[in-house]
Simulated scan of single mutants.
Amino acid sequence: MTTAVDDACPLCGGTGSRPSLYRIASIPAHSCLLMDTREEALAVHEGAMELVRCPRCGYLANRMFDEALTAYSSRYEDSQAFSRTFVEYARGLARRWVEDWDLSGRTVAEVGAGRGDFSRLLVEAGAARVLAVDPTIDRARLGEAPGVEPVVRRVEHPEDLPACDAVVMRHVLEHVDAPRALLGALREALDGRPDAPVLVEVPDARRILAEGAFWDVYHEHCAYPTAETVRELFESCGFEVRSVSSVYDAQYLLVEATATGVPRAATLDPDVLGRLAAEADGFARRVGTRVERWRDLLGAAADDGAEVVVWGGGSKGTAFLAALGGLRSAVRNVVDVNPHVHGRFVAGTGHEIRGPEDLRAHPADLVVVMNPVYFDEITAEVARLSPGARIVALGR
């Protein structure tokens, strides 16, 4: 049953009732913090999740997000740069943006650069200089990266954006509780620069809604944009949106825009709102079906004495394990290709994260893949390290 809550929508500012689609009373406040011990992982700060839909503009948001619980620092580790599949995709995206927007030999600011993985790829693609803007970045975290310069700050005001010819943001907006403030700062900083694009990548909530993908819902994700709502966000903030496209097996949206529009109130066509409501309002039911399916599968594996591992120690793995309740004990440990997380522990459940080679010494009977995009890549590794293991993936 859908209920409604009253507070202001981050996109349109509407203060009427927003239908509540899905609630989680207690989840890790951060799903990608490096936990050095099992005890620390089990004692991690807890947040809550309540996904609500604005009936006026369609915006989906976590109204229980609490910025005081966030702890973005050098301990926040979400790099996917150790997956061959992901690197090939990211390299292609960097080339596409540099070529399509004539950024060869120019200066790009990557806002929310993390470890600078994509900043390096932009230089490789032809950008002369990339300013890696992130409050957690420093030269040690960045490593050897010719052409990449760390800028240790958040972008909250127009003057926070360093001089540049383009802005790139990948997987930043979904972490921002006040997206209009951030985009407003970028719009003002780039005013009068029709040649300076803002190039953005965000998760696509439409797939999450359709699949009942409970493994893609986290406390620290404030926003869950669809193609329609992210376009409206940019256009109402004064950007001219050149394109919104679905990529990476419909997991991500790419937004390409310039600061050449006129700010206005945010709203959405009633027919579009109706379609979004129909897609969103059954989300909790779909989640329930998905969770029960996985509990049944892992319960049967536990009854058979099977050795079960989860492949993927990031946000998806954290959310998946948290949703299993008592059956999380059926999972022996987590495997991840990112060496920075090896020997650490999953926030909230305390599962140890090990490297793929651990499967050679400790074979698995069942491997649960957190992202089907990597299914072929992981299947090849499992065949090499733990022949005969059954492999299943979320979303399949």
Rank of each mutant, 00 (worst) to 15 (best):
D6K: 15
A8V: 10
C9R: 08
P10A: 09
G13D: 04
G14T: 13
L21N: 07
I27T: 14
A29E: 13
T37A: 02
E39W: 08
E39L: 12
V52I: 05
C57W: 01
A61W: 12
A61G: 09
N62Q: 04
R63Y: 04
F65L: 15
D78T: 08
D78P: 04
R84W: 11
R84C: 01
W97Y: 09
E99R: 15
E99V: 13
V108Y: 06
A109M: 06
E110D: 06
F118N: 01
R120M: 08
G126A: 09
A128E: 12
R129W: 07
A132S: 13
A140E: 11
A145G: 05
P162R: 00
A166I: 04
M169H: 03
V172N: 03
E174W: 09
H175P: 12
V176H: 02
R180W: 06
G184K: 00
A196W: 02
V198T: 02
I208T: 13
L209T: 07
A210K: 09
G212V: 06
F214R: 05
V217P: 10
A223Q: 11
G238A: 05
G238W: 02
S243V: 12
S243H: 14
V244H: 07
S245M: 11
A250Q: 10
T258P: 01
V262Q: 00
A266V: 04
L268E: 02
V272E: 08
G274F: 13
L276Q: 06
E279Q: 15
A284S: 12
R286C: 06
T289Y: 08
W294F: 10
G299M: 10
D303P: 00
D303V: 15
A306E: 14
G313Q: 03
G313L: 07
K316S: 09
G317P: 08
G325Y: 14
L327M: 01
N333R: 15
N338W: 06
V341S: 00
H342M: 13
R344Y: 09
V346E: 05
L366M: 06
F375C: 06
F375D: 10
F375Q: 08
D376E: 14
I378W: 03
T379D: 13
V382C: 08
A383W: 04
R384N: 02
A389Q: 10
R390Q: 12
A393C: 11
